[in-house]
């Protein structure tokens, strides 16, 4: 199997890409470079895991919202008045 040559990142360069990596907003090539760094650096891998964990927990809690049962009816009433 052909192995692709990866231009390695320093820890500082990897951390600078943390948000974009977690959000999958990097190019394929950049994603590969970060992944490669995380496979070889336990410190950065732990750092990235912690950040992802915080984001996921916050996201889960932010989404637990019950919509008032009559809100749609109130909106429809206002639209009727238009």
């Amino acid at each position: 199997m052909k192995s692709e040559k990866i231009d390695p990142l320093t820890c500082e360069e990897a951390v600078a890409r943390l948000d974009d990596y977690i959000d999958r907003e990097l190019s394929e090539e950049e994603m590969r470079r970060v992944r490669h760094h995380l496979e070889t650096c336990a410190g950065c891998a732990g750092h990235f895991r912690l950040e992802e964990d915080v984001l996921q927990q916050v996201r889960d809690k932010m989404r637990r919202i019950a919509v008032p049962g009559d809100l749609m009816a109130r909106i429809q009433k206002r639209l009727e008045g238009e």
């Binding site: 932010m62 008032p68 909106i75 206002r78």
Partner: peptide, 24 residues
């Protein structure tokens, strides 16, 4: 929309107002 409004304005009455205003 209501979930987002509640995170934006904090209180439930304000979130309901914001969603209604935006819908209108």
């Amino acid at each position: 929309a209501y979930g987002a409004a509640l995170r934006l304005v904090r209180t439930r009455p304000d979130a309901e107002d914001l969603v209604q205003e935006a819908a209108l």
